[in-house]
Amino acid sequence: MITFTVNGSQQSLDIDPSTPLLWAIRENLQLTGTKFGCGVAQCGACTVHLNGQPVRSCVTPIAAAQGALVTTIEGLESAEGDLHPVQDAWIAEQVPQCGYCQSGQIMSAVALLEQNANPDDAAINSAMSGNICRCGMYGRIRKAIKRAAGESVVGVFDPKANNPQEASNV
């Protein structure tokens, strides 16, 4: 029997202790926001927090979660139901396309900002290098992290400015 806390609620699972945390979360607890991408810790889609640290849940045995605190994407909202500032920034920058990798991206970004309130580009590269986005939204992820960190967002294209010079001659 593995006993651990997921998003603030205590869980006990009677399963093979070598079962990856990913499948316990998705199948036993039916929290499907955490995704399966590769199963070999190369893509980051399965990223969750284990005692506050980002881990790839596809290669983390459930036994490692014994007595631990696990946070998934479903656990980022506040008790009042408000989105986490990183989630808000993700909406503001219109980050997701297909959206499949974004739970993992957000969990990595939240962990980064908890350790480094003002990450520079190198810190972002380092913290986010394990998360693949096949839709290629890296530029928007970078902007959203900086937005969430409270930095001014410097972009080459501001959609709200509507690119008047090029877009006006319709």
Binding site: G33, E74, L76, Q87, I91, Q94, P96, G99, Q102, N162
Partner: peptide, 19 residues
């Protein structure tokens, strides 16, 4: 031709989108 936010995005930042 105007900026609007995509309707599918909120469900893709809180894990609720169903793939």
């Amino acid at each position: 031709g105007k900026y609007v936010q995509r309707h599918d995005i909120p469900s893709k930042v809180d894990g609720s989108a169903q793939f």
